[in-house]
Simulated scan of single mutants.
Amino acid sequence: MQRRHFLGRSAAASSLLALPTWLHAQTLEKPKLTIAVGGKNLLYYLPLTVAETLGYFKAEGLDVQIVDFAGGSQALRAVVGGSADVVSGAFEHTVNMQAKGQRLRAFALQGRAPQIVLAVNKKTMPNFKLVADLKGKKIGVTAPGSSTNVMANFVLAKAGLKPTDVSFIGVGATNAAIAAIRQGSIDALSHLDPVITILERAGDIRVVTDTRIVAEADKVFGGPMPAACLYAPQPFIDKNPNTVQALANAIVRADKWIQAAGPGEIIKVVPEGFLLNDRAVYIDAFLKSKPALSVDGLIPEQGAATALRALASVDPEIAKAQIDLGAVWTNEFAKKANAKYPKG
């Protein structure tokens, strides 16, 4: 009798342990989805890679396909065109697209500073002194219209130059960007790590503006400038709130894991191909970029206003547009994720 009672209680306990997983899976409106990203190998998107490789998406009941593009503007086009559900991309696209009639909202932060570096090519511009010297020059960006392009435009504007005063050339997110500098086919580069650290250590570039440094980013943009985040069309968020919450949970866990991780742990998690054949350089790049990565997935209160100022300074259409800043971001999901995973 006691044995039957024990077995009965054990069976009941087992069913209770299994129940939350079953219920969780049932509550996800869209467990299988696609995330578009522009340059997944970049440290800018490290939380996305960590969430994938450590199984955080799967732990939330999600089957996520990540589709990689050459730049953030192409990832944006994928979600606007309907071939992707969510974007892992630059925050300012949510502001930019509202001015064009597209309702996009950021809901989980990956980077609290842009981590973009504007640097000049020592080979083609050995006598560089001022940003104004870039007039008439060729500047490499991951892709035209991407966050690297936006940041370069903003720095140029502060020096009195218009976007049309230079030529922007898409060089992708990896080896092509390095080759473009070394071959002298571009005079400057607006890009991210690990590409910047590789060129910096080799003495190929001279850094002009470095937003891997949070204080410098705040100074450049006049306030906190949110960087990589997960964003999606508002109708997708409205229709799939539990799925969006699961995505936010995974990213917040990844943000916190990265802050607690050492370089050796990062190397084990990042795919070999992301290291660009030099682990030491990647570790150096990670240590430089780590302070600019989000610690909790929360978007700063003044972030949207900062992004709008930056965009408006180089785009007259955005300057004239009536932008509802409260509609381009929310911390609702990230706050719940922090409550669920207070320690990651």
Score class of each variant (00 low, 15 high):
T197N: 12
D218C: 02
A217N: 07
L189R: 03
R201C: 04
T211R: 02
D204I: 05
L199T: 01
H191K: 10
E216N: 14
V214M: 10
T209H: 03
E200G: 02
T211K: 02
D210C: 06
P194D: 09
E216R: 13
E216L: 12
I205H: 04
V207P: 07
P194C: 09
G222D: 09
D204R: 04
V208M: 00
D193Y: 04
F221H: 13
V220S: 01
V195R: 06
D204A: 15
A202V: 06
R206I: 06
E216Y: 07
V195P: 00
V195W: 10
A215W: 09
E200M: 13
T197G: 08
D193R: 05
L192N: 12
I213H: 14
H191L: 08
I205T: 06
A217E: 03
D210Q: 03
A202I: 03
A188N: 08
G203P: 11
A217F: 07
A215L: 11
D218K: 15
L189S: 04
L199C: 06
R201P: 01
V207F: 11
V207C: 09
L192Y: 12
L192W: 10
I213L: 13
F221T: 01
A202C: 05
I213Y: 12
I196N: 04
R212P: 00
V214P: 10
F221I: 01
T209E: 13
L199H: 07
T197P: 05
G222L: 12
I213K: 15
A188T: 08
S190A: 15
G203T: 12
L199G: 05
A215H: 10
E216V: 12
T211D: 05
I198Q: 14
R206G: 15
T209P: 00
D204S: 15
L189P: 07
D210K: 01
V214I: 14
I196H: 06
G222H: 12
F221C: 05
G222T: 04
I196A: 07
D204F: 10
E200A: 13
V207L: 09
P194I: 09
D218T: 13
G203M: 04
T209Y: 01
V208I: 15
D218W: 09
R201M: 12
A215P: 02
F221V: 00
D187Q: 13
I213A: 11
T197V: 11
A215V: 10
G222C: 10
D210S: 08
G203K: 06
V214A: 04
R212Y: 03
A217R: 01
A217M: 08
L199N: 05
V208N: 03
K219D: 12
I205R: 00
V220Y: 01
I198K: 14
S190R: 11
G203E: 04
I198L: 15
A217H: 02
T197S: 14
D204G: 10
H191W: 13
E200P: 01
V220E: 08
I205E: 03
R201L: 14
R201I: 02
T211E: 01
F221G: 00
I196M: 15
S190Y: 10
D204Q: 10
R201E: 15
E200S: 13
I205Q: 02
K219I: 07
T211F: 02
V208G: 09
V220F: 06
A217V: 03
V220C: 05
D204V: 06
V208L: 04
K219H: 14
D218N: 15
I213T: 13
